Simulated assay, not measured.
Amino acid sequence: MLKENLSLSQLFAIIIGFNVGSTFVVILGISAKEDAWISILLSTVSGLIIVSFFLLINELAPSKNLFEIIEFAFNRVIAIPITLIYTLYFFYLASRVIRDFGELTSTFILPLTPIEFIDFTLVIIIGYILYLGIEIVGRTTEIFTPYSAIFLFLLVIFLMASDTLSLTKIQPVLARGILPVIKSMFPIEVSRPYGEMIALICVFPLIKNVKLRKKTVLYSVVVSGILLTTSTLIITTSLGITTASRATFPLISTTRLVSIGDFLERIDALAVFIIMLGIVVKSSILIYSGLKGIEYIFKYPYRYFVIPAVCLISMFSVFITIEMNDHIREGGKIVPYFLYMPLQFAFPSLLLFILLIKKFKNKGPSSS
């Protein structure tokens, strides 16, 4: 089995791409209305707590991925069905992310191309990258992630130059109090994307420096939270919360407002690049984590399962929902309660509890 490693800078870029991912497709914190940006900002603080929780699980068995940690806490007989559940969960999330890509591409870039072909093309590319190794994902992300930050900054500059941004669209601040903001955070905005970072427990062991790994992860969560807050702010201050909530792709609708001297217009490519890079990174990590689960169950290198897995994910991404509205409704109202809460919080809490018990039991005899 080939030894894979990631650098700290690659991990930093991967986490930013993972958190941004398909999150830019929709406006976050929409139920908080004009205070959506506050919801995202506070969600970042909650995200730091959640990620620290995942890091603690990994630190109790630093050289093991998620599925090996589950076996370490319980045993292989119990770990296999749990691994299968998490594998299907990661593949399901990847299918949703790829469906976002298909909807975006078929709407703005290739309107005459069937979405089936678009999704299949993407997963074949992702499958090829993963077959070459997770290091390729790290290198690619490390190169292109700075461009996403630069493009988002340019978008802010262009919108300001077009006199499109208006702070009155997010006023008055906290007009309905803090309670609607808190309600918008849980469980959706906290689970997406920070709870989904449980998949990165399969990536953390590839970084050998545990101390710097923790700092890198926390810094990347802060940066991604700033990017998501900035995105929400420019959407709400340009479109207004009513128009933004009705837009299928709010960030792209925002870029269409840019008009500087009747010369610089329709810079949709900037938003499309940001969204597409995040989608590729996030779906790659989710598929990789699922493949590591299959590797654990069958004890064969995950590369043997890459092509069959991505083909099934491509097919499922088409059948997962009928249209974009149903897709968004499922992700915002159904999935968080039936999948996110048990798999992102309930079982990891039990897992951490068992690991802590094992740790104290192992310390007991040595100290006595």
Rank of each mutant, 00 (worst) to 15 (best):
V258K: 08
I143R: 04
I188R: 11
L352D: 01
L155I: 07
F117Q: 15
A346W: 03
L122Y: 10
F120P: 03
E103Q: 13
E135K: 00
F249G: 14
F151L: 14
G195Q: 10
I98E: 07
L200T: 05
I313V: 14
I354T: 00
T141E: 14
P193M: 04
L42R: 01
D100N: 15
F153H: 01
V25S: 11
D35I: 12
N75M: 03
L6Y: 08
L352Y: 02
S317E: 09
G127Y: 01
D163K: 12
I157F: 04
L130I: 07
L104Q: 09
S43W: 02
S220L: 00
P336W: 06
K3M: 03
L352P: 03
V181H: 09
I16S: 02
F101R: 09
T164M: 06
I241T: 15
F347V: 11
I188Q: 13
S283M: 06
R139W: 15
S39T: 15
I182K: 04
L239W: 09
P81D: 00
T243S: 15
L174C: 02
I15S: 01
S95Q: 10
S191V: 02
I252K: 13
I170N: 04
L154W: 06
R213G: 13
T236Y: 04
E135M: 00
P365Q: 08
L155K: 07
E71K: 05
P250A: 03
F360H: 06
I80C: 05
L179C: 00
V222I: 15
L257F: 01
R192Q: 03
G240N: 15
L227Q: 15
L356C: 12
I279V: 12
S184G: 07
S63K: 11
V51W: 03
I334P: 00
I287R: 03
M160E: 11
I267A: 10
P146L: 09
S9Q: 10
G195H: 10
Y300C: 07
L206W: 05
I157R: 03
F54L: 12
I30H: 06
S43G: 13
R76A: 02
S367I: 10
F90G: 01
K292L: 14
I16E: 05
I49W: 07
T248D: 14
I279M: 02
F101M: 12
V45N: 08
L132W: 08
D262V: 13
V203P: 11
K282D: 02
V310Q: 07
G17Y: 09
K363L: 14
I30K: 15
K299P: 00
S220C: 00
S63P: 00
G364Q: 12
Y194S: 01
S349I: 13
L130K: 02
Y300W: 09
I287M: 14
Y92E: 05
G290Q: 13
G138Y: 02
L152R: 12
E4N: 13
S289D: 08
V137Y: 03
G29N: 10
L155F: 01
A199F: 00
L132M: 08
P146E: 04
M160N: 06
T229G: 07
S46F: 13
L66H: 14
I307D: 01
T216F: 06
P114K: 12
Y302N: 09
I201G: 07
E103L: 03
L2N: 13
P146S: 02
L352C: 05
A73H: 13
L159R: 07
T255Q: 05
V222T: 10
L291Q: 07
Y92I: 01
G364L: 11
D326Y: 03
Y340G: 08
